[in-house]
Design a protein around this nucleic acid. Structure first.
Lengths: 116, 116
DNA sequence: GGGATCGTCAACCGTTCGGTTGAATATGCC
DNA sequence: GGCATATTCAACCGAACGGTTGACGATCCC
């Protein structure tokens, strides 16, 4: 739900967003601090954070007037499982991968008749 | 180069393309056969294949008049390493991940002054 | 209350994306 | 040669993306 592959991969496809994730790997950060290293408006960063948030890759909690951003690495779990099914880079839970493919196929089929 | 994270993740962000990859997991396929299960024009599938090809996720070899599509799972390697650095889902080569982050950061910086 | 700070909203802009259709280019086969 | 098959090209379309700017709403603090 929160972390479907479409939104997760789309979120990861932007280098700014990947860099934000890498920054959050170190520690939680306020939006303004996230924006600081980028030569980009705060609004732009805010939008990137929305994308990451919708993909489930981060969570945001407002404390006072500052909104703290926190990495949510679990959202990468399904995506990672999906990818690992393709390469045999390391030992993989092939079972999980196959279940995942099935789930996605079903999701794809239901989507067709279910554009809300 | 061929498999930078931008293009790989962008390619994976589309469910049609992920399904194509899953199909190619079974066997190499001709373009027409790839297109068959999708309710979509051949031209659309052809474009998807270009995207996958540019991302390095598949290779295409023309034999006669039919062009065979082959999965190239190695292209997922870097992306997989990148992702695994975030979650501690399984035992990971953290070293590889850190080197990767650095490489990406450098690439990001050079891109700025280098829009050809 | 009032000014500064934090963050988002809304409108806009140019580009890319995912799809279509119709024409064009190979190639295979009789 | 000539027709069928396989695939791409080119032009077009609407929607989504990534960014900007300026106004706005909260919150902190004096």
């Amino acid at each position: 739900m929160t972390s479907d592959l479409d939104s997760v991969f789309a979120a990861l496809a932007d280098p700014t967003r990947r860099q934000i994730l890498a920054m959050l790997l170190e520690d939680d950060m306020a939006v303004t601090d996230v924006a600081e290293p980028f030569g980009m408006s705060l609004a732009a960063i805010s939008k990137h954070l929305v994308v990451l948030s919708r993909a489930g890759l981060i969570s945001q909690e407002k404390r006072g007037r500052v909104k703290w951003c926190k990495l949510e690495p679990d959202a990468l779990r399904d995506a990672s499982i999906w990818m690992q099914g393709f390469g045999q880079f390391e030992a993989i839970n092939l079972d999980a991968f196959e279940r995942f493919l099935e789930r996605e196929e079903i999701a794809g089929r239901t989507e067709v008749g279910d554009q809300s």
